[in-house]
Amino acid sequence: MNLLVLLLSLSLFSCKKSDNSEKQPIENLPTVQLSDVTQQRRTTDVSVRFNVSVWSSFTKPITITYATQEGTAKQGTDFVAANGTLTIQPGTTQAYVDVTVKGDSLRQNDLQFYLQFSNPQNALLGGTKSTATILNTDGTYLPTSNDGYSATDNYPGYSLVWSDEFNGSALDTKVWNTEQGNNNGWGNHELEYYTGRPQNVFLSNGNLIIEARKETYQGFNYTSARLTTQNKKTYQFGRVDIRAKLPVLKGMWPAIWALGSNITTVNWPQCGEIDIMELVGQTPGTVYGTGHWKNATNGHGYKGGQTSLSSGDFSQKFHVFSILWEKDSIQWLMDDKPYYKSTKDIVDGIYPFNNPFFFLLNVAVGGDWPGNPDGTTQFPQRMFVDYLRVYQKN
Results as ranks from 00 to 15, higher is better:
Leu4Glu: 10
Pro120Glu: 11
Asp335Phe: 00
Ile346Gln: 12
Leu12Cys: 15
Thr144Ser: 10
Gly349Arg: 15
His300Ala: 11
Ile256Tyr: 08
Pro143Val: 12
Val201Arg: 07
Asp328His: 15
Val80Cys: 08
Val201Leu: 09
Val46Asp: 11
Phe379Lys: 04
Ser11Tyr: 06
Asn146Tyr: 03
Tyr158Trp: 09
Gln392Trp: 08
Thr72Glu: 04
Ala82Gln: 07
Gln69Asp: 08
Ser105Ile: 01
Gly206Phe: 07
Gln39Ala: 14
Leu361Trp: 08
Phe166Cys: 04
Thr173Arg: 14
Ala364Tyr: 00
Tyr222Thr: 01
Ile64Glu: 07
Gln392Asn: 04
Pro370Gln: 01
Asp386Met: 13
Leu106Ile: 05
Leu124Trp: 07
Ser342Val: 13
Asn221Trp: 09
Tyr391Arg: 13
Asn119Trp: 09
Tyr114Gly: 08
Pro25Ala: 14
Ser118Lys: 15
Ser261Leu: 12
Asn183Val: 00
Asn154Trp: 14
Asn109Thr: 09
Leu309Thr: 02
Trp369Cys: 07
Leu124Asp: 03
Asn183Pro: 00
Arg389Thr: 00
Lys129Met: 14
Leu191Glu: 00
Asp45Asn: 15
Asp78Ala: 09
Thr100Glu: 02
Ser329Gln: 14
Gly91Ser: 09
Lys245Ile: 01
Arg213Asn: 02
Thr223Tyr: 12
Ser47Gln: 15
Glu215Ser: 11
Lys327Asn: 08
Asn167Glu: 07
Gln180Tyr: 11
Gly260Thr: 04
Asp241Asn: 10
Gln40Glu: 06
Glu165Asn: 14
Tyr114Val: 08
Asp368Tyr: 11
Lys303Thr: 14
Trp268Lys: 05
Arg243Phe: 04
Gln69Val: 09
Asn267Ala: 11
Ala82Phe: 07
Lys16Thr: 04
Thr229Gly: 06
Thr85Tyr: 12
Pro352Thr: 07
Met383Glu: 07
Ile330Phe: 12
Met1Pro: 04
Phe384Met: 01
Gly157His: 02
Ser322Trp: 08
Asn354Arg: 12
Thr43Ala: 14
Gly301Glu: 05
Trp293Ser: 13
Leu12Pro: 04
Leu324Met: 13
Ala132Thr: 05
Lys74His: 09
Asn20Trp: 12
Gly185Gln: 03
Gly289Asp: 04
Leu12Thr: 09
Val280His: 00
Gly299Met: 11
Asp336Trp: 02
Asn394Ser: 13
Tyr155Ile: 13
Leu86Lys: 05
Ala364Asp: 02
Phe314Val: 02
Gln381Phe: 03
Ile134Asp: 04
Thr144Lys: 14
Val240Glu: 06
Lys341His: 02
Thr131Gly: 05
Glu22Asp: 07
